[in-house]
Amino acid sequence: MNLLISNDDGIFALGIRTLANTLAAAGHRVTVVCPDRERSATGHGLTLHDPIRAEQIESVFEPSVQAWACSGTPSDCVKLALGALLSHPPDMVLSGINHGSNLGTDVLYSGTVSAAMEGVIEGIPSIAFSLTSFSSQDFQPAANFARSLIDRIAQHPLPKLTLLNINIPAVPDHEIAGVIMTRQGVRRYFDMFEKRIDPRGKTYYWLAGEVLEDVDEAELEEAGMSGLKASGGDAEWFRKTATDVQAIRKNYITVTPLQYNLTCALGLESLQKWQIQSSFMEG
Rank of each mutant, 00 (worst) to 15 (best):
T42Q: 13
T42R: 10
H44K: 07
H44N: 15
H44I: 11
G45K: 11
L46N: 09
L46E: 11
T47A: 03
T47I: 10
T47R: 01
L48Q: 13
L48I: 14
L48P: 11
H49A: 14
H49Q: 12
D50K: 13
P51T: 13
P51L: 03
P51I: 06
P51M: 03
I52A: 00
R53P: 00
R53M: 03
R53I: 08
Q56V: 08
Q56S: 08
I57Q: 04
I57E: 00
S59D: 12
V60K: 09
F61M: 11
E62L: 10
E62A: 15
P63Q: 06
P63R: 07
P63W: 00
P63H: 08
S64N: 05
S64Q: 10
S64D: 11
S64P: 09
S64H: 03
S64V: 06
S64Y: 00
V65F: 06
V65A: 07
V65K: 12
V65C: 08
Q66D: 15
Q66G: 15
A67G: 09
A67Y: 04
A67L: 03
A67N: 05
A69V: 05
C70H: 02
G72L: 04
G72C: 07
T73G: 08
T73K: 03
T73V: 06
T73A: 04
P74W: 04
P74S: 02
S75D: 06
D76E: 01
D76A: 00
D76V: 06
C77A: 03
V78K: 04
V78M: 01
K79I: 10
K79A: 12
L80G: 13
L80I: 09
L80M: 10
A81E: 00
A81C: 05
L82Y: 06
L82C: 10
G83M: 03
G83T: 13
A84Y: 04
L85M: 07
L85T: 09
L85A: 08
L86G: 02
S87G: 13
S87T: 13
S87K: 14
S87Y: 10
H88Y: 15
H88P: 06
P89Q: 06
P89T: 07
M92W: 04
M92L: 07
M92E: 07
V93H: 04
V93Y: 01
V93F: 02
L94I: 09
L94M: 05
L94Q: 05
L94E: 07
